[in-house]
Amino acid sequence: MALCAMLMLWPASAAMEEPVACSVPAELAQPFLSWRDPIALQAASTRKGTAKANLSAGQAAALTLLPTPEVAYVLRPEKPGGSISFGGLARFVVPTAAVWRVALGSGVWVDVVKDGKAQPSVAHGHGPQCSGIRKMVDYELQPGSYTLQISANGEDRLTVLVTPLQ
């Protein structure tokens, strides 16, 4: 049951209408088990810098972001952040073609970029209530290396998890 809940994309606004008081955190299932135990990772300010900002599938990362004016995005984000917001870049590798999910701890804007092109998302929504996952975006990805662009975050920290969906 918990696995079903984690793999289901809640409609983008389903949990936006009525804030839910969470007395007990939602049970997390694979592949989101590490969500509450993320590894620390410094986001990169350039595409070249993402060589040191690798995201591993199924491993949550607590990204330290940069002030937006310091970030050189590969592509201008569709929703760029303002001068006082935070953003950054990271990299992940897709070994085999699959639908990948990017789970995020805020309503931040993300682009998944390959060969200078933003990959179209195939679905987006909210994480399960009380999971701490605010937003999830799915992409159909072919094998290769991808740049994750993060823009317009209000804080300099952001929990991120990328994972293929089985």
Binding site: K79, P80, G81, G82, S83, I84, S85, A152, G154
Partner: peptide, 14 residues
């Protein structure tokens, strides 16, 4: 321009 918002995260176009 998201700088219209208090924390630079949201513009009218958002």
């Amino acid at each position: 321009d998201p700088d219209l918002s208090v924390n630079g995260t949201l513009s009218c176009a958002g």
